[in-house]
């Protein structure tokens, strides 16, 4: 069980690292949203899965309720993260930001 927990935690950390580095390296605001909105979502999913596997050690009523709460967090994040991303994109579109395109170099 510990091995599964460590595996999922490390996977989530890799996703989070990709998200943070993508936010820094991407050239413009629209493409920054791609790593920010979604690598973080899957990172939260993987890390919460790891924590659930860790807390399955001694099973009781309290752990069952905390596992249900963690699943509630995952459900809410999966519902709210696309909405937040879409809201930010909408704000950018209405403000008239142009998106970054590849420049022709010759």
């Amino acid at each position: 069980m510990d091995i599964l927990a460590i595996f999922f935690l490390v996977t989530g950390l890799i996703f989070f690292t990709g998200g943070a580095i993508g936010i820094i390296r991407m050239p413009d605001f629209y493409s920054r949203l791609h790593p920010a909105g979604k690598l973080d979502t899957l990172g939260i999913f993987a890390m919460v899965l790891g924590l659930i596997f860790y807390s399955l050690h001694h099973f009781s009523m309290d752990t069952l309720i905390s596992i249900l709460k963690m699943l509630l967090i995952v459900f809410f994040v999966f519902l709210s993260s696309p909405t937040a991303t879409h809201s930010i994109v909408d704000a950018g579109m209405r403000a008239g930001l142009r998106h970054w395109t590849k420049k022709k170099r010759r």
């Binding site: 890799i14 990709g18 998106h99």
Partner: peptide, 21 residues
Amino acid sequence: NFHLLFIVFHPRLKDLIDPHI
């Protein structure tokens, strides 16, 4: 997600992406 992870860690990032609508 793994595809996006590959893009993010790629050293020549600006040649790889091509944003359009």
